[in-house]
Design a protein around this nucleic acid. Structure first.
Lengths: 145, 145
DNA sequence: TAGAATCCTATTAGTTTACTAGTTTATACA
DNA sequence: TGTATAAACTAGTAAACTAATAGGATTCTA
């Protein structure tokens, strides 16, 4: 139940992009410096976000990354599952035929409730919500952990 | 966000003990056979549950394991955190001094909400609830996944 | 006192995590 | 048209974790 730094770093990075949405591309180096993340490692995380279609890139001088859509159109569960893998606690929640007792299984019900609880939190929010929260709280635009 | 088989196996095992509560000790071999888990691996998982004070052991012939308390007094979050480690999504949720922006941190708020969502599911239920669910659903007393 | 059961310690193949390093490709600008 | 800039791509790696397996020591009962 520990979040990987993939998620922690990735969320902080995409939040930087969300805050700067509409102001042109931001470079990896900028984000890495600001959030104190390894340049090369962040590069790989952002590549994941790009592959998922959440982020767009511009190559060459004055290039960098921008959100592919407005912050209000990117739900947090999209970001999370891109970085952390599918939001499935156990396989039998996806494949109903996984085991013979699947529909009757008590532990499966608990895992299902846990999974739904997390999913509801993340599905209910977009990057815009995080931007709004940030602007209400923090004046200088830096975010941590 | 994938549950380890430590949790999956461990929960199934302690549920067996909960169902049999008050009927004397059950051997590892019995549970391992019934739940199709490696004998030696289950031994280690139950050792964790014992170290956490959730399970009691009786050595020698006709020995085995029983719950240390009635099923109604063991909450699911106790079992979960014993097997899966502390239910803390990120370190800065435990240590408020972890980083300078901790109180203002936006991502931290999201992790906090996620963690609370899971915790609420697990804290609200005891092993007795699982036993009740099982008895309403399944006549032959076997549980899977 | 035989044997059934837990208890304890060690080992291991495979995977994942969190990086680092180096090279290649595209492009704005002089 | 050259050059600096920044993403893109590929590979490697030490450390930790996962899911076991192995073997013996200890304890208690019948």
């Amino acid at each position: 139940m520990k979040l990987s730094s993939r998620s922690r770093y990735g969320f902080r990075a995409i939040l930087e992009l969300a805050v700067a949405y509409g102001e042109g591309p931001i470079q990896i180096k900028t984000i890495a410096d600001r959030e104190d993340i390894s340049n090369k490692y962040l590069e790989q995380l952002i590549a994941m976000l790009k592959a998922a279609g959440l982020v767009r890139s511009v190559r060459g001088p004055r290039g960098g990354y921008t959100l592919a859509k407005p912050p209000s159109e990117i739900r947090l569960d999209e970001v999370f599952s891109t970085l952390e893998g599918p939001l499935v606690a156990v396989d039998c929640l996806e494949h109903a035929t996984f085991c013979s007792k699947c529909t009757d299984c008590v532990t499966r019900r608990i895992w299902s409730q846990m999974q739904d609880a997390v999913l509801n939190v993340l599905r209910a929010k977009t990057l815009q919500d995080m931007v709004d929260m940030a602007q209400g709280l923090d004046k200088n635009g830096t975010y941590h952990i």
